[in-house]
Every structure is written in C-alpha cells, then in structure tokens.
C-alpha cells in the first residue's frame, strides 16, 4: 500500500472519496428525476438546486477517488456496475411521494452536514477543501428539508399520514450511516474524517427535536439494513445505473 498525504493510505482515501462521491451522484440522480414533476414551480427550482449541488460534489469526490489509478469522473460514474458502487442504501431508494423525498433528504443531509463539518477540519487537505465547500450546500439542503418536514408533518391530516409512512419506509436504512468500513476507520484514525460513531448522537438529536415539533416521531423499530458501502445494494440501484449509463456505454470511445 502507498502512503499518501497525512499518513493516509491511498487505497483508503480512494474508498472514502468513492463512497461519499457515490452518495452524491446517486442522490443527485434521484432528485433530477423530479424534473417537471415537482408539486410547484418554486420546488422545481429548489430540487434542481439540490441535484446540482450534489452533482458538483460528486464530480469533485470522484475526481479525487480516481486520481490514484488515472480514472476520471466519467469513467467512475459510467463504467462501474452496481456491485462496485459504494453509496448508502438510503440515497438509492426511489423518490416515492414528496414526503418520502423530503424525509430521505432530511435523514441524509443532516448526516452529510455533520460529516462534512468534521472532514473540513480534517488532516487530508483535498477532502477538507471539498467538505468546506459542501458544508454550506448541505446546510441549505438541511434547512430546506426541515422546512418541508415541518409543513408536511403539521399541515393536513393527509400530509401527516404520508410523513409517518415515509419515516417508516426509510428508517431501516439509517443504521448504515454510522457503520464505518475498514478504510473509514483507518482514515478516521489518521484524523482525515470524523469517526462515524461521533456523528450519531447529534444526528439523532437534530432529527428527533424536529420531528417532535411536527407531531412526528422516530419509528419504534430498529434500523437494520446495511451493505451499500460494501456494494450490496437494493434492486433499485441496477435500474438507476442502467438508465444513467446506457448512452455513455453505447459509444465506448466517444467524447461528449
């Protein structure tokens, strides 16, 4: 193994960047699927903003991940199959209704903001730079999701019912957020990224207090799904990638 900056192994940096980059890429794709289907035009703009921010982060992270073996962002995005994607299961879950989409955003962006805050103060300068920029975007995404969760939770009987269902649907995928891979643990030991266990308490507190305000609560059953970081995905990811990759793969030597 090659040691890189700040004592971080190249292979660990690669895997950390790849996982985070895949989270952004896949969630950006999901948000982009809302295009022309949003509940109002203002939301059309907001969802596109979220998708664009995440796509930008994905590109930086994938570029960093591919540096070691000379693969560029497009190579990583378009030429890997789902077993080689390292994103969280949460972000690949289908959009469902608007309550599902905003709940997914709340659960993920709250996590991402905390993670980026830690990483921005970390010892790996390129990861830190990406995180420093990303944290402002994540903050806005959290604000946006919180506002909608409040509105839907405290809106009408129907919107409240849909919010409860969305929480039940997505809660199982939250355990994985705080399960470090071996690479993550080594990167955390080097101070490049925060230990995931340190994020769980503030994450839970932030979400719990918001839900309490909106007459909602964290589901009583335990979260048990995981495997995305290790390439064991839900059935949904294969379809998402088939759509995303088919044109690029149909013209192997083309540039666009």
């Amino acid at each position: 193994m090659t040691a890189g900056v700040a004592g971080l192994w190249v292979v660990d940096l690669r895997e950390v960047a790849l996982g985070l980059g895949d989270d952004c890429l896949v969630l950006s794709h999901r948000l982009a699927e809302w295009t022309t289907h949003a509940p109002e035009l203002e939301e059309e703009m907001a969802l596109a903003n979220l998708a664009l921010d995440l796509l930008g982060q994905a590109r930086s992270l994938l570029t960093l991940a591919g540096e070691a073996d000379g693969r560029d962002e497009d190579h990583l995005a378009y030429w890997r199959d789902d077993r080689d994607f390292h994103n969280l299961l949460l972000v690949e879950q289908p959009n469902g209704d608007f309550a599902v989409t905003m709940t997914r955003q709340l659960l993920f962006s709250t996590f991402q903001e905390l993670l980026y805050r830690g990483m921005a103060a970390g010892t790996e300068p390129r990861l830190a730079a990406i995180a420093a920029k990303g944290v402002m975007e994540a903050r806005y995404h959290v604000e946006h999701a919180r506002l909608w969760v409040q509105r839907l939770g405290g809106g009408t009987e129907e919107s409240h019912r849909r919010m409860c269902r969305a929480l039940d649907l997505l809660w199982p995928y939250t355990r994985e957020l705080f399960e470090p891979t071996e690479s993550w643990s080594r990167a955390a030991d080097q101070g490049a990224v925060p230990p995931l266990s340190s994020l769980e308490e503030p994450w839970r507190h932030s979400i719990e207090s918001l839900l309490a305000d909106s007459d909602l609560e964290i589901p009583g059953f335990p979260a048990w799904q995981s495997g995305g970081r290790l390439g064991r995905h839900s059935e949904h990811l294969g379809h998402l990638l088939a759509e995303m990759q088919h044109l690029h793969r149909s013209h192997p030597n083309a540039s666009w």
Partner: peptide
Amino acid sequence: WITRAPSLRRKAILLAKVQDEAG
C-alpha cells in the same frame, strides 16, 4: 435526457438549463 446525459459535465449543464427555463 437529464438522467441519461453521457457525461457528468453535460448533465450539470442540462440540469442548470432546464432549471433556468423553470425560472
């Protein structure tokens, strides 16, 4: 074509364009 754009750069440009039209 957003979800099928053949490069990430083109995807970003197209997403931003379609967002402009909403604006």
